[in-house]
Design a protein around this nucleic acid. Structure first.
Lengths: 158, 158
DNA sequence: TCTATATGGTAAAGTTACTTTACTATATAG
DNA sequence: CTATATAGTAAAGTAACTTTACCATATAGA
């Protein structure tokens, strides 16, 4: 039994350091909580993380729902819900795609345009704060490594 | 208007690369989806990410609910719910803390003990796969950087 | 010693961010 | 010109929490 116990303790220790997944989850939550809390006070629009996740994938000409869903790695129904809320908040609008009668293009409104410009500032601000504390080099490296990790994930299914 | 448009395009481009938060969210989701999918097939226990998040924080002697909540960065009520499910699945058990009549200690059952040893194998397997693809150096560095980021987050509130 | 307050935990309902299942409308290939 | 694929919508369900409210025990101070 003594040997088994030691084995177990080593396993637990391994779990602690091995769980990159848990590290990612916690870091993501903390980062976004801060961004949302900060951004909320900036303008009257209370945008939650799910909303801001859309913006990086929107092109100026407009982007299809299905395209958004693919890029974001969620279902198109989920995109529909998020976009609907942003439409109600008058940040985005949906216009018919002239090249396909079924499709709709999601686009910024003038107000959304201004809000997003502000939002970028908030994000940069938060990243700069961490950069100051941890070093710009670490932040840049983290971003590069995460991008590579995502590319590898996307590359191979299951 | 032309100048504003260019400005906007640059802002969007910046959003794409600047959103470390979004990178973290996506990486976390993908990583854990894979781990859960893999682990589920291993044993009959269908453990979800919320469940496995508890394990790294459990000591062999038993850990208090409040301690778990603090370490995990969630409310003690949330811990209560997760532990209740794991208790029903007979992976964990709650025993009264002899040193404090209010407190309870969360501990592994014999079955949970074995399941977690298996689970460690799955996690290591997945990390090794990415290590093989991206290089062990990148994975180790990512883990170190995330740990530092979390420490910095924890250090300063808001 | 007894009251005030802090701490450990539980209970129930609400919220966020999705997914699943089930459709309708338009497009395209044969 | 039917058969199937694709774009999107609708409604309900689920996971992983939080908020609000509470009870039980502990402990420090009057």
């Amino acid at each position: 039994m003594a040997k088994t116990r030691r084995e177990f303790e080593r396993a637990l220790e391994a779990a602690k350091s091995a769980s990159t997944g848990q590290l990612l989850i916690r870091a993501a939550r903390l980062f976004n909580e801060r961004a949302v809390a900060r951004g909320r006070t900036l303008r009257g629009l209370d945008l939650r993380p799910a909303h801001t996740a859309v913006f990086p994938h929107l092109s100026l000409e407009g982007t299809r729902m299905t395209t958004l869903a693919e890029k974001m790695g969620i279902t198109k129904q989920a995109v529909g819900q998020i976009v609907a809320e942003l439409e109600r908040a008058e940040v985005l609008c949906r216009v018919p795609d002239p090249s396909d009668g079924r499709a709709k293009l999601v686009r910024f409104t003038a107000a959304g345009y201004r809000a997003v410009l502000d939002g970028m500032g908030v994000l940069r601000e938060i990243e700069n704060e961490f950069g100051a504390e941890l070093g710009e080099a670490l932040m840049a490296r983290l971003k590069r490594d995460l991008t590579k990790l995502l590319a590898a994930f996307e590359g191979a299914a299951s």
